[in-house]
């Protein structure tokens, strides 16, 4: 039963991980952070993360195509890295996303994606 700190430590153990955080995407606030952030600014990165999630979630029709469809994760690929956003589902009201920044060369997208799924699930289920 990992806590928030533990979850982020495990996220940093994903091959190629440079930084990780848990972000409240209603407000764009980093609830917890570790490692590096783009431009060394976790708060700005969190605000950007929130924008992206909201754009996909409520400003686009992707998650409205089928009733009860849910956004699971978003992957942003840049020349230098991968930015992975995995929504953390809780039964109580919260809008959280687990963010991991991965080095493009050292990171393995498939592995990272599966590890993040496990981490997000473990954080909130027994």
């Amino acid at each position: 039963m990992p806590g928030v700190e533990n979850c982020l430590q495990e996220a940093m153990a994903i091959p190629g991980a440079i930084g990780a955080s848990i972000v409240d995407y209603t407000t764009g606030f980093p609830v917890a952070t570790t490692g590096a952030a783009p431009n060394e600014d976790h708060e700005a990165a969190a605000a950007g993360t929130a924008d992206v999630v909201q754009a996909a979630q409520s400003r686009s029709l992707f998650v409205s195509a089928v009733p009860h469809d849910l956004l699971e994760d978003l992957i942003i690929t840049t020349a230098g890295g991968y930015h992975l956003l995995r929504l953390v589902r809780t039964d109580f009201d919260s809008r959280l996303v687990l963010y991991v920044w991965l080095d493009r060369l050292r990171g393995n997208l498939a592995v990272a994606r599966r590890r993040m799924q496990t981490l997000a699930d473990e954080l909130t289920t027994r």
Binding site: V4, V31, L96, L123
Partner: peptide, 17 residues
């Protein structure tokens, strides 16, 4: 065992902010 530590922490953090 009613909640995971992660759930509790996230809930308390959210409620506090």
């Amino acid at each position: 065992g009613h909640l995971t530590q992660g759930e509790l922490e996230l809930c308390v953090l959210g409620a506090t902010y």
